[in-house]
Design a protein around this nucleic acid. Structure first.
Length: 747
DNA sequence: ATAGGGTTAG
């Protein structure tokens, strides 16, 4: 009898100790250790199950927590509260609220938990609603939860009113108010409140230190740190990591050495400091020395190796890591992704037992970056939970594949959109040549109240350039100035190209001159602009100016200057530059350069020389080169060479009717009507489509696109009417001045 | 013992 009692007592104390272990492991992030203890237990009580639920939830594994909750043999009030707390920690407001509504009975814990869940997610009115429903409000924790909620969300007035109303304030009430000020960077208010406090503890002091750190006032932070009556580990770590983060690694290390006691967080903070300072050796040294490592230590170290590109070292650590978590595995995947090592990334990814949304997104972005869009989209379809990043990546993915219909479908499917979503769609349209759609969605974006950023503006400006839509481009330019993105490099470069393509080289030059920073793309864009508009001499002059600025011309620069020479008929200059490009600048000519040369010589009637360049090139000729050849042959009526160029061109672009038409015209000019007939048959056989001429017009703030020979397009009577009166006007004046295509209400 | 309010590390 005694022994039986003893054994029961022993079993009880074993369970007790094991329960404690679960909680402690969970607290230091060692969830796998906690799981092992739980699974090895022969006897479990309700506390065991509750502890394990909490353990899972605190480590982000909320679904496993829920599964345990559903499976446990007997639930008590704490089980329900633990599960709600779990949802709260993982910001799953809906699930928390559902449980809160369903639970058989509630205590003050349940109410407070639910309130905190709401305030953490900014739902202060809901939290307030619960607080007002509470039967008795004596519990200070409940008051503090709401005060803290208001304060953290910068609603200082409501927080203060509640604080003043509170019958019996405790130190946490004061610190909750204080935290509101310090965590929001309101250090003047914070200091005022701090001075009001009659009783302070180390948390109050730590809040002040951290507050100054957040506003980058390290001197004041240090002053407060030195005045703390009895600093604890948190005080030390706050100061230490502040120094470490701002690159003052010597001071950080000095604090680390002076600390009376170091916990794992202190070690981790110091390692992080070294990692962020690029001192990977020192970080690794500390990692080796530290007495106990948490999952954060491992993750930080792996991240550190990844950051300096030491992927093998990172991988070795990951293999050594006793219980691998998603964060560490994702860091590793990210490293491989950055180095385009997708197969290695995949291998790690396959081994992640509990993939989170970031992990999936990293893989998807990696496949996209490598152009493996199908694999990226397969993963997107397969992933269980998608966030905004996933959706935006998918839009970009389909856009990259050129499937704008699917991109648009994904865009419409998503519940919430941000600027990146719009940008992915608009840049997709631009990159795939659907410029009108790009602009249409830019307008939609404004209508829906989304805020364009530099990328939106750059893409839309590029679309305007390709449409030669000068008026819309100008209005966008105004918007850009107003928005402040005018100083952005990409936007500036886009403006140069837009004005160039619209034939406004002076405005392109002005946009260039007004840029705060320029890069080689700015110079290349302007040179290409001069070339496009026939200003050969100016393009060459700019080329020299660019060199004087210390910039080294690249392949694109030479495409610009060579085409400038050909457009301006500067043959000798062009030949000289082409020679110099290879000899002085060590640039291997690409197809575009050869096309320029063929064009240059061909226009000048030096068809033989042009053809020998084509024959002599080490690379295979493309459509651009044969197109230049054919164009030159047409001008100089060289039917022999023209036929050869055209035949080659038909192989590249069998559908393009204009090539057939060109050759057909040449035959016609030579009186070869049999050949003309043959061309006509070829066009019909190959299903060649004439690229329809397209333009657009603005009527009543709407852009209408219309196509040559297609009078089904303009739907409204107004459009037809407007077009008819325009044509009448054109006939009367002999030419058409710019149509004002005002799209936007600029105010 | 396991669940609620104020401070530190990836």
């Amino acid at each position: 009898m005694t022994s039986k009692l003893k054994s029961i007592r022993q079993t009880g104390s074993l369970v007790y100790n094991q329960n404690l272990k679960i909680t402690q492991f969970a607290k230091s992030g060692r969830i796998e250790d906690a799981i092992r203890v739980f699974e090895d237990m022969l006897n479990r009580n309700t506390v065991t199950w509750n502890s394990m639920i909490s353990a899972y939830a605190k480590n982000g594994r909320i679904n496993e927590a829920r599964s345990l909750f559903d499976r446990m043999p007997f639930k008590n009030l704490v089980s329900w509260n633990s599960m709600i707390a779990g949802y709260s920690h993982n910001d799953r407001v809906k699930d928390a609220a559902e449980l809160f509504d369903k639970m058989p009975q509630r205590d003050v814990f349940s109410w407070t938990l639910m309130m905190t869940c709401y305030t953490r997610n900014g739902l202060l009115e809901k939290a307030r609603g619960l607080f007002d429903q509470l039967p008795k409000k004596k519990d200070p924790v409940c008051w503090n939860a709401l005060i803290s909620g208001y304060a953290k969300n910068r609603r200082f007035g409501e927080a203060r009113r509640l604080f003043d109303e509170m019958p019996v304030k405790d130190l946490v009430s004061w610190n909750s108010m204080l935290a509101g000020y310090t965590q929001n960077g309101e250090m003047r208010l914070g200091l005022e409140f701090f001075d009001e406090m009659l009783v302070k503890d180390v948390v109050s002091w730590n809040l002040m230190i951290d507050g100054y750190v957040q506003v980058y006032d390290l001197d004041s932070a240090l002053k407060f740190f030195q005045r703390v009556p009895s600093p604890n580990v948190v005080s030390w770590v706050t100061m230490l990591s502040a120094y470490a983060r701002s690159g003052r690694i010597v001071e950080a290390k000095s604090l680390f050495n002076q600390m009376p006691e170091r916990n794992v967080v202190a070690w981790n903070a110091m390692i992080t400091g070294y990692v962020q300072n690029g001192q990977i050796e020192e970080a690794h040294q500390l990692f080796t020395e530290m007495p106990e490592r948490s999952s954060v230590s491992w993750t930080t170290m792996i991240n550190g190796f990844v950051r300096v590109g030491k992927l093998d070292e990172a991988r070795e650590l990951l293999e050594q890591m006793p219980y691998k978590n998603v964060a560490a595995q994702t860091a590793m995947i990210f490293g491989y992704v950055q180095s385009m090592r997708m197969d290695d990334a995949r291998l790690v990814f396959e081994n992640v037992s509990c993939r989170d949304v970031v992990c999936w997104n990293t893989m998807i972005a990696g496949y996209m970056q490598c152009g493996r869009t199908d694999e990226a989209m397969y993963l997107f379809q397969k992933m269980p939970i998608k966030d905004m990043v996933s959706w935006n990546t998918a839009i970009a993915g389909y856009a990259q594949k050129g499937d704008m219909n699917k991109a648009l479908r994904i865009f419409k499917q998503m519940g919430e959109r941000n600027t990146v979503s719009w940008n992915s769609l608009i840049s997709g349209y631009t990159q795939n040549g659907f410029y009108v759609d790009a602009l249409k969605h830019f307008v939609l974006m404004l209508k829906e109240g989304a805020k364009p950023d530099w990328s939106t503006y750059a893409c839309s400006i590029i679309a305007c350039g390709n449409l030669a839509a000068l008026q819309i481009g100008k209005q966008l330019h105004h918007l850009i100035v107003k928005s402040g993105y005018i100083n952005d490099l990409f936007v500036g470069n886009a403006l140069i190209t837009m004005y160039s393509k619209c034939g406004r080289i002076l405005q392109a030059r002005q946009a260039f001159n007004e840029m705060v920073v320029t890069d080689i793309i700015s110079w290349n864009s302007l040179i290409a602009g001069y070339a496009l508009n026939g200003y050969g001499r100016e393009a060459i002059q700019l080329f020299q100016e660019m060199e004087n600025h210390g910039l080294i011309p690249d392949q694109v620069t030479f495409v610009g200057v060579l085409s400038a020479c050909s457009h301006a008929g500067m043959i000798d200059q062009g030949l000289k530059l082409f020679k110099s490009m290879a000899e002085d600048y060590c640039i291997v000519p690409i197809a575009e350069h050869y096309a320029c040369m063929v064009d240059l010589l061909g226009r000048a009637g030096r068809l033989g020389e042009a053809y020998s360049i084509v024959k002599g090139m080490p690379i295979k000729a493309n459509a651009g080169i044969w197109g230049a050849m054919l164009g030159a042959c047409r001008i100089h009526r060289n039917l022999e060479l023209g036929k050869l160029a055209a035949e080659k061109l038909f192989e590249f672009e069998p559908q393009k009717a204009s090539n057939y038409v060109l050759l057909s015209n040449m035959h016609a000019e030579a009186g070869r009507w049999d050949e003309v007939e043959r061309m006509r048959i070829m066009i019909r056989e190959r299903g060649g489509q004439k690229q329809p001429g397209c333009s657009w017009i603005e009527v009543n703030n709407q852009v209408h696109a219309f196509f040559a020979d297609d009078w089904t397009q303009p739907k409204t009577a107004e459009t037809c009417g407007t077009l008819k009166s325009l044509m009448a006007h054109m006939r009367n004046t002999g030419y058409m001045s710019e149509i004002n295509t005002s799209l936007f209400d600029c105010g």
